[in-house]
Amino acid sequence: MKYALTCIVCPLGCVIEVEIKNGEIISVANYKCPRGKEWAIEEILSPVRPFMSVVRVIGGIFPVVSVKSTGPVPKENMKDLTKLLSNVVLQAPVPAGTVVLHNPMGLKVDIVTTRDA
């Protein structure tokens, strides 16, 4: 299986080609720097993304408060994270930085609020 990924490490936007077989990388081509190669490999094997959402809050400035993960989370877990958060309702006041979920699904990140509510 061959993947063509537009690199986002720098504005150059190399289209890096990665070939994998049985879950193992066979070749990486068309990259111009080692950071790009590293990125492409990670993007194929274990892509991670920043995560952001909102959580309902009662009595706050707005009906919801924004949250984020303290570090990137695996792409495949994002949907389940929003499902977890859909059952959370906070009670104001909630200062920014409050931990809403601690180490959810063992992802080794916290979900914290990013504005006051």
Binding site: R56, T82, K83, L85, S86, N87
Partner: peptide
């Protein structure tokens, strides 16, 4: 619906 309406079980 509310923001969670498509995700809630």
């Amino acid at each position: 619906g509310d923001i969670n309406s498509l995700r809630r079980e």
